[in-house]
């Protein structure tokens, strides 16, 4: 465990080296948050019928999404991709660690480090100036935190799965784009999932992606009462376990065909 914790903390320290990048990322997330709030503001101002969420909830949902944006699986793990392309991945295999565990840890670190650096200042800004609401209750806040942690594991399982496909594709650009579109659409980051049409809701409920963003956000808003959260946690964890199992199987197949070329 100590080894994995050390890898996690190394990734944090690496990110802290790039202060300018962190600030630029923060500015970018604030900007797109403002744009999205403006768009939904226009929609809500012109709509007459009742909506599944009130505007204040949508604003809060958007800012939560901006704060945790980097936690969704948008790409393969950058460090592992660089290693696979340069051949340094050979060193990964000379470590006395389970390779899936190692890559999963790298994914958790890669996803959580930027979020932890950016979400607090962003939430402060959005709470003070942008009308982001506090959690609906203490229980809701706790449930949201727990669901966010489960979402992180789910996200890491997805990133690790994408990373493992690099053993076949090496570049990983195509799969990254596919993943990006899918995740953006179905996690709630583009449009809060309650605003999707009624007939699509059962599909959204089954897909794993709502566990990344929508579940924790609706717990935060109180849409899902904390007392009814259990099935949502189970949904997140079941998908996580399934993706881990799939990833492990794929990795064991990939290792057999692994070729590390050159010098």
């Amino acid at each position: 465990m100590k080894a994995y914790a050390a890898i996690l903390s190394a990734r944090f320290r690496t990110l802290l080296q790039y202060r300018a990048a962190a600030l630029a990322g923060l500015a970018c997330q604030v900007f797109f948050g403002l744009v999205r709030v403006a768009i939904y503001g226009a929609f809500y101002a012109l709509s007459s019928g009742p909506q599944p969420m009130c505007f204040a909830e949508v604003v809060t949902y958007i800012w939560l999404g901006q704060g945790l944006l980097r936690m969704i699986p948008m790409s393969v793990d950058g460090e592992v991709r660089a290693m696979i392309q340069s051949g340094s991945v050979a060193y990964e295999l000379t470590r006395p660690l389970d390779l899936y565990g190692l890559w999963f840890t790298r994914s958790v670190a890669g996803l959580s480090a930027p979020v932890l650096l950016r979400c607090l200042p962003l939430f402060l800004f959005a709470g003070i100036f942008m009308g982001m609401q506090p959690p609906s209750s203490w229980e809701a806040a706790l449930a949201c935190a727990a669901a966010t942690c489960c979402g992180l594991l789910l996200s890491a399982a997805m990133v690790t799965l994408l990373t493992i496909t690099l053993l076949w594709t090496v570049a990983g650009d195509g799969i990254t784009r596919l993943a990006l579109i899918t995740v953006w659409t179905f996690s709630g980051i583009v449009m809060p999932l309650p605003l999707f049409p009624e007939w699509l809701q059962p599909v959204l409920k089954i897909l794993p992606f709502r566990g990344l963003m929508d579940t924790p956000f609706r717990l935060y808003l109180g849409h899902i009462p904390p007392g009814e959260a259990l099935p949502f946690f189970l949904h997140q964890l079941a998908w996580t376990l399934a993706l881990v199992a799939l990833g492990r199987w794929l990795l064991s197949r990939g290792m057999r065909r692994l070729v590390v070329q050159g010098g």
Binding site: A10, Y18, S86
Partner: peptide, 14 residues
């Protein structure tokens, strides 16, 4: 112990 001369096993940024 393994050293591949053309690659590094050190963390680039640290």
């Amino acid at each position: 112990g393994v050293v591949f001369g053309q690659r590094t096993q050190l963390w680039w940024d640290l």
